[in-house]
Each structure stands twice: as C-alpha cells, then as structure tokens.
C-alpha cells in the first residue's frame, strides 16, 4: 500500500518537474533579453530539478537521503550563481530590455564607471 502511494507521488513529482523544465527551456527561447532569460532559466529549472530529484528518491528505494541532500544543495547554490551572473553582466554594461519600466539598480546610485568599457 505504502509503496503504491509513494510510487504515484514520485510519478506526479517527476511530471511536475519535467513540465517546469520545459517551461524553462521555452522561456529561454521566448524572452527578450539576458535578465529575463536568466530568470526563466533559473526559477523554473530550480523547481524542475528539485522536484524531479525528490520524485526519483521516492520512486527508488533507499535514494531519498541522497536526493534530498542534492535538492538542498541545488536550492542553495542555484539562485546565488544566477545572481552572480546577472550582477556581473549588469556591471559589464549589458542594457536591460526597454520594456523594463523602472530600472531599480540604476536608482541606487551605483558608480559603475570604468567597468566593462571595451575599446
């Protein structure tokens, strides 16, 4: 009984994960500029990978601790690396999409002079 419930739960979790991975891939193709693509490629992919790994841990006997550890490490490092990439590309002079109405990072009066000017 418990095995059947865990199997169905794992299958549902893997389906949710695959769907969100597909959404992440779609967002990378469809969104206009670097920051939006980074957001799609991080948020959706993090949820997808975490859900998929926990689903596999529920399906296969004895893999749950490893998959939970993997999920926790991914939840911890994936947003940080995405934040680092976004910050570095903003400092290197990548302009946001013109539809991004308030550029909050420009309001903070950061002096980016002398950074990323390649000539």
């Amino acid at each position: 009984m418990l095995n059947v419930v865990l199997g169905w739960l794992g299958t549902v979790l893997i389906s949710i994960g695959v769907f969100f991975l597909f959404l992440g891939a779609l967002g990378i193709f469809r969104l206009p500029d670097l920051f939006n693509r980074l957001q799609a490629g991080t948020k959706a992919t993090t949820l997808g990978v975490v859900s998929t790994s926990i689903g596999v841990g529920l399906l296969v006997k004895g893999w749950l601790p490893f998959s939970v550890a993997l999920a926790v490490f991914l939840l911890m490092t994936n947003p940080i690396s995405s934040h680092a990439v976004a910050r570095a590309s903003y400092r290197a002079g990548v302009k946001p999409y013109h539809g991004t109405s308030p550029d909050e990072c420009a309001k903070r009066n950061l002096d980016f002079s002398g950074e990323g000017e390649e000539k």
């Binding site: 490490f73 911890m76 490092t77 940080i80 934040h83 002079s113 002398g114």
Partner: peptide
C-alpha cells in the same frame, strides 16, 4: 570601494563553503 559588495554573494558563499 567602487561598488558595494553583494550581500547575497557574501552570505551564500560562506554557507556554501561549509558544504
């Protein structure tokens, strides 16, 4: 200091370093 360092990177790398 040209720019203020990022707090997210600071805390995140310190936590990730332990793991």
């Amino acid at each position: 200091k040209k720019t203020e360092p990022s707090l997210i990177m600071y805390v995140g790398t310190r936590i990730a370093f332990a793991v």
